[in-house]
């Protein structure tokens, strides 16, 4: 796990100052999500940039503002960082207007990461909904670089419609070459859909992964996470076997501006990754 010593220093030691970066590739992921490749303008800094799966960065489009996104490329990918942005508010909408070559700012990596070093020899079940697959993508890439260290890896991945599924070519690749079992689901039946139909929590209870020697990692919309946690506990998973990664409205990303707290913990510096055991100790304010 990253410790708090791994701080983002920023130009001149000012952690509020972004580094300059360029969008090197940009393509639609779904009808309302784009994926960006971002490279730091300073080649040395880019080559030296390292992050752990689950960590986030703040992207600035000056004039529009700054927002937090998870880094979803493979940690060993040294040429660029990938982000996926759903059009939702002012900043994300402005990002959707950009094209390749656009100059932006980047602060990161920020936050903690998935404790994958505790996953050795275990079965791993990843459960994601929609763009909730983004934080799990770098984790999957990392797990696959050392596939032999882990037992069964399963991904349950759902979206509203087939069009809303992200990273489709990755899913095929992980299935075909990564020895990963993938269970795809959509909310409602669509002609030609050859996979499961139903909400992600329902599919979790159908698939019924056995809790013994298993860790579960989930991310998706808050309502999905809430019911996935319920299903996992019904299946006998202990809170310390379950991890999730949270979203909150953030500004500074440094634990100073105040808004992303759940009780005494800040999602930006103490998270975004929490075990259910950790969350249960916090006030119920999801």
């Amino acid at each position: 796990m990253m410790t708090k010593d791994h701080k983002y220093r920023g130009p001149g030691g000012n952690p509020y100052l972004p580094r300059l970066a360029t969008i090197t590739k940009l393509y639609p992921e779904t009808p309302n999500i784009i994926s960006l490749h971002v490279a730091l303008n300073d080649k040395k800094e880019m080559a030296g940039f390292s992050f752990e799966p689950g960590q986030v960065a703040q992207l600035s489009l000056f004039g529009a503002g700054e927002s937090t996104f998870v880094i979803n490329s493979a940690p060993k990918q040294k040429d660029y960082l990938q982000f996926s942005i759903m059009k939702a508010g002012e900043v994300t909408s402005a990002f959707h207007e950009l094209s390749v070559g656009a100059q932006i700012g980047l602060r990161g990596p920020l936050g903690n990461c998935f404790p994958y070093h505790e996953f050795g020899k275990k079965n791993i079940i990843l459960i994601a909904g929609g763009l909730g697959l983004a934080p799990l993508r770098p984790l999957m890439f990392h797990l696959l670089t050392e596939r032999r260290k882990y037992a069964d890896i399963t991904l349950i991945y759902g979206a509203r419609t087939p069009d809303d599924l992200c990273y489709l070519s990755d899913l095929d690749d992980w299935e075909d070459h990564g020895n990963v079992k993938i269970i795809r689901t959509i909310d409602r039946e669509v002609p030609g859909w050859g996979y499961k139909v139903g909400f992600v929590p329902t599919i979790v209870s159908q698939v019924a992964p056995a809790p013994k020697n298993t860790v579960a990692v989930t991310c998706g919309p808050p309502i999905m996470i809430k019911f996935v946690l319920v299903e996992l506990e019904k299946l006998g998973f202990e809170p310390h076997q379950i991890y999730t990664t949270l979203e909150r409205r953030m500004k500074c990303g440094l634990g100073l501006c105040g808004r992303c707290n759940i009780g005494p913990k800040y999602v930006c510096i103490d998270g975004p990754v929490f075990s259910l055991a950790e969350l249960k100790k916090l006030p119920n304010e999801m």
């Binding site: 509020y16 000056f62 004039g63 529009a64 501006c257 808004r259």
Partner: peptide
């Protein structure tokens, strides 16, 4: 508690920190 917001004047501008 504070907010951070950009104030643009044409192609240039400032990032402001304001009490929230």
């Amino acid at each position: 508690c504070f907010n951070m917001a950009d104030e643009a004047q044409g192609m240039c501008g400032e990032r402001l920190r304001c009490w929230d």
